[in-house]
């Protein structure tokens, strides 16, 4: 069984790791981040909808998708939240998953803010 402990100290965005994953290509990093900023709220919406419908299959798939996508974007705190929701779904603890959704939405907002400020903004663009 997966560990379902929320890592509250997890980093929001590891910019260096993300840019390194893109082989130092800042332009590619920004394009990937822009796509994530567009699609991630849809993933969170799918999680919310699946929870409302108590559709565990859809819930597991949506949480898993956001977990993987945010991990590739070096957003560990968001990925961790999605992992916990996936784990609660697998064990049938949907009330706990619902509670965790609030945390996930907060962390998603933080992640998008950090992506925009550290990569997409003029200040972010100046970073090497």
């Amino acid at each position: 069984m997966c560990e379902v402990v929320c890592n509250s100290t997890a980093m929001i965005f590891d910019r260096d790791e993300f840019v390194q994953r893109n082989m130092g290509d800042l332009d590619l990093s920004r394009k990937v981040a822009a796509l994530f900023i567009t699609s991630a709220p849809e993933y969170a919406g799918s999680i919310r909808l699946a929870l409302a419908d108590r559709d565990t299959i859809a819930l597991c798939q949506s949480a898993h998708k956001l977990k993987g996508a945010s991990a590739n974007l070096s957003l560990p705190s968001l990925s961790d939240s999605a992992r916990i929701i996936e784990s609660f779904t697998e064990t049938g603890e949907l009330e706990k998953a619902t509670e965790m959704l609030t945390v996930l939405e907060h962390r998603l907002a933080q992640a998008i803010e950090r992506l925009e400020s550290e990569l997409m903004s003029p200040q972010g663009r100046e970073c090497p």
């Binding site: 082989m23 796509l35 567009t38 699609s39």
Partner: peptide, 13 residues
Amino acid sequence: DDDAASRLMLQSL
């Protein structure tokens, strides 16, 4: 990959 961001990253690399 069904995630557009991951797909773009892999394709570009």
